[in-house]
Design a binder for these strands. Structure first.
Length: 127
DNA sequence: GTTCTGACA
DNA sequence: TGTCAGGA
């Protein structure tokens, strides 16, 4: 499929799909006319990339964490060398810090909401 | 109309 | 990331 379809199916702007390729996160083939040609399995990979990006990992780390270049893997870090393992521990710690930060802000917002509206229900469905 | 590369905010 | 240019 061409970039437009992948963009639609992943909800990712074509601009970003080209950027991911530039960063070595995706390696689509090329059509005779020069257009990028994305395989079906890349739909999942793009979602995988967006998820890691959303978790705060930089593209250079994601590149190391996604050795599975063209397989429909979920998050298989099978052949993670000691180098990558160390990188992942570091990212895991950053995530913990981020989660704690988000939790504090969420609680602050809950407190504010409870004061101004009095109708929110902390600890309700979803938590 | 769709995509491409490069560049700038 | 968004957006524009100038082509194919």
């Amino acid at each position: 499929m061409r970039i437009g379809e992948l963009a639609r199916r992943t909800g990712t702007p074509a601009r970003l799909l080209r950027y991911y390729e530039e960063q070595g996160l995706l390696t689509p083939g090329r059509l005779a006319n020069g257009y990028r040609d994305y395989g079906e399995h890349l739909v999942g990979r793009v979602q995988q990339i967006r998820g890691l990006l959303d978790a705060g990992l930089p593209t250079r780390v994601i590149k190391d964490v996604l050795p599975c270049l063209d397989t429909p893997c979920a998050i298989t870090i099978s052949d993670a060398g000691p180098e990558v393992v160390d990188l992942l521990r570091q990212e895991r710690d950053r995530m913990d810090a981020r989660i704690a930060c988000l939790a504090r802000n969420r609680d602050a917002i809950d407190a504010y909401l409870a004061r101004v509206t009095g109708d929110n229900l902390p600890g309700g469905p979803g938590r």
